[in-house]
Design a protein around this nucleic acid. Structure first.
Lengths: 345, 345
DNA sequence: CTGTTAGCGCATTCAC
DNA sequence: GTGAATGCGCTAACAG
């Protein structure tokens, strides 16, 4: 709370350089219309005095207000619910910084609907964060938005071929590999079959996780063979049926990797067959359910991508791109968290 | 970048409530000297209009400047070097927000020196972040600082009995438990001995990790017995000697847990005896070394506490406490990261 | 108890 | 090319 006015301002720089405030500002913000000689002089003074712009003052003077739209999948998926909740928190925080978030939820399995929704956003926002579907229509909608001068970031699920400015999310191939290593190691030399369940291979993140997982298991754990992939549509009752069938038909089943949601169904199936805690079971997304499964030893590891981080990161990235403020890349990398029962947050 | 002046300001609130700007401000910031009736009226209008304070304007008007001091251990410890580097980055960022960090490094194994350093800080800073030593002299020094009105947060290593305002760091007992579970699971039913190496049991974090680790292994993996703890002083050549002796004298050695630094020495010892990749080896702190060891299969898992997060979190906490801005606890929780070779950042 | 007023540091007109 | 002047929204004296 020091009140020492020691802080160097643009005024100081201007005076010291023998120019006006306006000129100093032009140099500092790289605006045109300053003779190179003058500019050099200003830059020298900036360096010599160690001038640092005052972020609060700049924002206040600029007085701009930013409007962002977050487009998330509708439906009962727990992770998406968490994400939506975190987006709400982020919105609360941003509102104090002159930025506002609208949250839209659209059917994730309908590329046409998603594309149409996106196109309807043109001109209405400064930036858009979207949990994307890797589909030509969606890609083209994203490109239309960027062509209209909007900043678009993909969230959780990427469309690399689009013109999105940034992807906020994890490397899902690596996430799948991580699951593979965990199951491989936890199986501890046992020989047998491993069940693999995805929500739908149409989702890029699911496909990537499956790829990474299979890669590691087949490459490095030859004693474990991966069963043909099953599709659950992320529904508990489907995962339960799938796993019950496996338990019935695959005598040497030693592990399960669930790429998507529906872990509750798996736990139910394991309980019904009295095999909980015996099979190695790895899944995604830390929820009340999976946390409980970890604590009870039903699940052995949960791979997680923090919804709060992703929401805040998307907001920071949008804000930085719109306002021209700097971004610290390292801080924006989303990590693949591994949780076992002892390092639960 | 909408220029719509739609934003509601305190002026609007004041006008609508039929009071002056100053009164509205007093209500909003909980300052005394407003009749309850008036205050209620203002709060109503705030709610009705959905007024959100403008953070930038508030900071600018307040015009305070904050001075923080970060006190880190000197010495060659890699993690502490990373932390120092991150503190420098954080300082860079803070300087734009009217806050300044001085970084001090003192001998970590000398409580007297640390305490003296801390006492020398009285009155010179608004806040202090310190990698503390749990020692009566240090505790009392911390309490002296807080008594002098300074905000103190402990970083990485806590002194729970002190009056520090906040601890920025992980739960080290949980970190030790996590190591225990990983080694227990990775050992995959093998029977044998597990080596345990700490830097020094005088460091609270080392002691806590050791405790958590032993707790899990003895409680849940009876087929693994923990060897008597060895002290390395975090030095490579000491860890190397320790591990070479273990490899010589303990025929059934199946795992190693290194609580502190010195993983390079362990890798060297394992290589010398041709046992790398065969023993389960878990340690702390992601560095260039440990990253390489993971990739080469020498280490099986690295438990990490992100230096960047901790540095930024400490800064945010100090700033929030000094300026009275709100803090989002959830965002300030430091996680226990588990890295295997597939989820390296 | 309440109101008036003067900036905070910078971006941005509009003159020159 | 450059400078002078105005105001962003809020806080903190100071007056009443």
């Amino acid at each position: 709370m020091s009140r020492v006015s020691s802080r160097i301002t643009l005024q100081d720089v201007a005076r010291e350089a023998g120019v006006s405030l306006a000129t100093a500002d032009r140099v500092l913000n790289g605006r045109a219309g300053v003779r190179e000689a003058t500019a050099g002089r200003v830059r020298d003074v900036v360096a010599r005095l160690g001038y640092r712009p005052n972020a609060a003052a700049a924002r206040l003077a600029r007085g701009e207000t930013y409007r962002f739209c977050f487009v998330l999948p509708s439906g009962p998926n727990v992770f998406m619910r968490q994400l939506a909740e975190q987006v709400t928190n982020t919105a609360e925080w941003l509102s104090t910084h002159n930025a506002f978030i609208d949250l839209l939820r659209v059917d994730v399995f309908a590329p046409e609907a998603l594309a149409a929704t996106l196109e309807g956003l043109i001109g209405r926002y400064d930036g858009v964060a979207v949990v994307a579907l890797d589909h030509p229509r969606v890609r083209s909608a994203i490109d239309d938005l960027t062509a209209a001068g909007m900043v678009v970031v993909t969230l959780v699920s990427d469309v690399p071929s689009s013109h999105r400015r940034h992807y906020v999310g994890v490397d899902n191939i690596a996430a799948g590999r991580t699951a593979g290593t965990l199951i491989g190691r936890f199986a501890g030399g046992r020989q047998g079959a491993v069940g693999l369940i995805v929500g739908t291979p149409a989702l890029r993140d699911h496909a990537e996780r499956q790829f990474g997982f299979t890669q590691v298991l087949s490459g490095e754990y030859p004693s474990l063979k991966v069963l043909p992939v099953q599709e659950s549509l992320d529904e508990d009752h489907r995962t339960q049926e799938i796993v019950e069938q496996m338990l019935r038909e695959v005598p040497d089943l030693v592990g399960l990797y669930n790429v998507g949601a529906g872990n509750g169904g798996i736990a139910a199936a394991l309980a019904a067959f009295g095999r909980a805690g015996e099979l190695v079971f790895v899944g995604h997304d830390l929820t009340d359910d999976t946390r409980r499964f970890l604590l009870r030893g039903v699940m052995d590891a949960v791979i997680n991508q923090d919804a709060g981080h992703q929401s805040r990161s998307a907001a920071r990235v949008l804000l930085a791109h719109c306002s021209g403020e700097p971004l610290f890349d390292e801080q924006e990398r989303i990590r693949i968290d591994i949780f076992v029962r002892d390092n639960l947050p």
